[in-house]
Design a protein around this nucleic acid. Sequence first.
DNA 1: GTCTATAGAGTGATAGAC
DNA 2: GTCTATCACTCTATAGAC
Lengths: 212, 212
Amino acid sequence: MADISTKQKILNASIRLFNENGLANVRLQQIADETGISVGNLAYHFRNKEAIVSAVNETLNDDIKEILSAYRLFPNLIDFDNQLSKYFSFLEKYPFYFLDLLEMERAYPEVKAHCQQYITKMISQIRKRFDFNQQRGLFIKEPYPGIYDVLADSIWVLMSFWMPQRLIRNEEPHCEGRFKQMAWSQLFPYFTEKGKEEYDQLIRPMLNQHFS
Amino acid sequence: MADISTKQKILNASIRLFNENGLANVRLQQIADETGISVGNLAYHFRNKEAIVSAVNETLNDDIKEILSAYRLFPNLIDFDNQLSKYFSFLEKYPFYFLDLLEMERAYPEVKAHCQQYITKMISQIRKRFDFNQQRGLFIKEPYPGIYDVLADSIWVLMSFWMPQRLIRNEEPHCEGRFKQMAWSQLFPYFTEKGKEEYDQLIRPMLNQHFS
DNA sequence: GTCTATAGAGTGATAGAC
DNA sequence: GTCTATCACTCTATAGAC
């Protein structure tokens, strides 16, 4: 199983380098060096750069798939907070995923195709939480038609571009508390009284513990 | 003034190419071709690639400076909508500005320094609108301390990463109506009755006209 | 101010020995 | 499975003619 191990080492090294330098700036030689093998050996395991990118992408898609599968039939507030945690871990592992997606689209159009559906599914999960929690009486009826759609989009953007925006502004990006605060503050205005109670009871204490 | 003209032609060509291919993927040869000059001539006008990036960056900073200067002493709702329009024009002109900022940080650390302050100023302007319009009775007092700070951050992120997020999701990015809708929907929950009235009267008709 | 020509280092990818 | 060696190509930057 030395084969699998080396393959995995290559992928791990690639992810590290992609995160540091961006997809377009990483050379095969660098990947080989970081892995501790020769370029020739690298070529044995992956035909070319696209094959590496493709494999890295599949690894990450598996991660996203797992996050999505954690969506439960009855998605309460705690469930959402858990999903936030998982998503934040993903962003820490691969901060520039969504930026490199654009790069992939440019350089490796075939690779990008798979990702689209995951994004759509993620947003639709967020959207469904509104419906479900509205039925539970935690969220108000949407004050204007379509606003919950826009809101679901906004939350996805704020989560997905967390890392790049923090880095651009020279703010500490590895702060899960602020990340969650930004997400929850999007929902806040739409809580009913009952929703506020449940939030204050279940979620707020967990948020505060990030800042203690 | 043939000098200035060529310099400007180079910058325009560079912006086009950076937008299309990303900073890291654009070669001097490409810029020369797109400008309609030789690489040698390109070198006459700009010492190296960094000099071009730096000049492009200054051009864009001038644009941002102008947007920021449009912030008035009494920033009402119409004023905010105007600033949204201007910002959207900027994003259309240079969709990947904030992504390429990260690339600049990696490749040309000297160049990036200037941008920081503009971002801070932009966010602080958004934040001040809350205070001003709260005094005018259009916005409610912030329900929890600090939420208007988070909200200003969120609005900046949603505006700044509009283009990349739309492109990743294969949604039409040149849709000013949706852009504004996303921004305004952030403010919506914090309007007082008086604020809603002014919004319905002054802003909503302008938004609807984007979708007619 | 504009060009051609080219230096010199780096690139992805492959062939073939061990 | 792993390596060295090398090909054909592209890159940035510069030198020097017009």
